[in-house]
Amino acid sequence: MTSRTTSRITGATMRPNRAAIALRRTASGVGNLWLLALVLVLWEIYGRVSGSLFVPPISRILQNFGDVWLGGPASHLFLSDLFWSEVTTSLSRFARGWGLAVVVGIGCGVVLGRSRVIAQMYGPVVRFFAAIPNTVLLPIAVQIFGVASNMNVFLIFLGSVWVVMINTADGVAGVDPMWLRSARSLRVPRWVLYLRVIVPAAAPQILAGLRVSLGIGLILMVISELYATTEGLGFQIVVAQSSFRYLDMWSAFVLIGLIGIVLNLAFGRIETRLLRWQRRSGLDAL
């Protein structure tokens, strides 16, 4: 132990920056995780002591998780058939709904952000729709789309599009006028102005909106499947719940949580990469 610590310190003196960064990262990682660990430990204790069927100990949930969602052959990445059928169904709905929300949200957001007149005309409409709780739209969506994946796609879309749109509009309206002036003096064509200047310049806020919408879309993916559907993760939860299989229900939640974490991590990677310029110039300015 001691020798290792020493060598670490030596390493730190040799490359102080990297070591310091690594140390800080580990520390903040631990800082993020200890709360989770505490919650899990308390959960385990509560589950064991109470003997409640509704809140089983986390260890049993994880064991059940392995039984239900894992255990497939290597060719299936060790994931079960149920995983492949339900997760792909749900995620494909999510991808279609959220993808559409991103395209439409950014498109309309740019228009709203560029035109004061349009923003004044449609701003209240956007904010009105954004304020409607999406679960209220569930029966309407079923009326329009019936018992089909399009219903789920529509709800995911409708739930995530507004936050993308509003963030994009704010971001676009707030683009540094110096960049716009610079682009104007370069006499760039309109499409270059929008695709290579305005959208990238507004990217920090657009991406912030996308990240929020990612969470909303994921939750709506599950909620929309609690009802008027015959497959998907949400459906599995309903079935487990109505047959009092609480372990199955909790492992489905664990799976959804993991999917959320993976999607968020992937998004974070992309975001960091796309916004390198912003971070560096920010540091430079300090």
Partner: peptide
């Protein structure tokens, strides 16, 4: 990071 936590919390909250 806050948003990430919120997203996860949202899913757990659902549960």
């Amino acid at each position: 990071p806050l948003r990430r936590r919120l997203a996860v919390a949202g899913v757990l909250g659902l549960g």
